[in-house]
Computed example of a mutant assay.
Amino acid sequence: MLEEPPILRIRRGFPRPTAAQIEAFRGVPTGFVCDAMNGAGSLDTAIAPIGAATTSGPVVGTAVVADNGPAEILATMAALSLVQEGDILLSAVHGYQGTSACGDLILGMMKNNGVTAFVTDGPMRDVEGIEEVGLPAWCTGLNPNSPYSKGPGAVGDAAVIGGQRVASGDIIVADRSGVVVIPHAKINETIKALEAVKAAEAAFEAKVKGGAKTFFDLDAMVAEGKAIWID
């Protein structure tokens, strides 16, 4: 007879980014990070800021993934025993919208553990309490229905959240524009590309502030045969 499997799988030994790698993304807007990864890396636009995240600047931290599954919260609860100060806890509920993925009390426990932010592909509840806790969070909306804590669930591994595979040990950068995942294996190359992005953005910003109004000289493009007037 097949034995009942454990209701929780917990991976503690995932590779973590260094403090210097985390610091390289401190204060960097999500748009810059996406540009450094060839224009990609953001979670689905349905995952939006709530509470303190609507007014705070960019946050950055190490991803700790709690793969709960639909209508579940067991893995998120267990992750509270695994997170370290500065981590960002991500709850995967496989996009399920029928119950909340987290409320203000668990969010408060995350803050007590030094967690930097919370991200989920499901709704949250207790919006007044979320605002009072003051921990930046990103979710798909609000739903007061209660989740279950029966499992199964997994902590410290990987899950698909908002259309992106997120693994524990990746770097997360989040701001009012969205949430971006930097895979652990691509951290250093993204940091290197980010320097060029910052320089290009600064140069372009200077042009705009200097009065620039257009991208192209259309007359020159017509003369070169790259464009044609049709009127």
Rank of each mutant, 00 (worst) to 15 (best):
V160L: 06
D231L: 08
M109N: 10
E201T: 15
V119C: 06
K186T: 12
M77W: 09
N145P: 01
G134S: 10
I106V: 13
P58Q: 09
G163M: 14
D104F: 03
V83Y: 10
G153C: 03
T120L: 05
I106P: 06
K213Q: 15
A117R: 02
D157G: 11
W229A: 08
P29T: 00
V83A: 10
G122W: 11
H184A: 10
N68I: 05
E23T: 06
K226G: 09
I88G: 09
A203M: 09
P5I: 10
A78M: 03
V155G: 03
V115K: 02
L2W: 08
P49F: 01
K207W: 04
M221T: 07
G98W: 09
A79P: 03
P183R: 01
V133S: 11
A20P: 01
L90Q: 10
T120K: 05
N68Q: 06
T76P: 09
M221C: 11
A66P: 12
A154P: 00
L142I: 15
T76G: 12
V133K: 01
D219S: 04
Q21T: 00
L80K: 01
P152Q: 11
I22H: 11
I50Y: 12
A174N: 06
Q164L: 14
K186Q: 15
L105V: 15
C102W: 09
A52F: 11
E195S: 05
Y148K: 14
V197Q: 04
K111I: 00
D87A: 05
R165W: 02
I172S: 06
P183E: 01
A159D: 04
A159K: 05
A154T: 13
A220D: 14
A212F: 10
L90W: 11
D175H: 02
A79S: 14
A78P: 01
C102H: 12
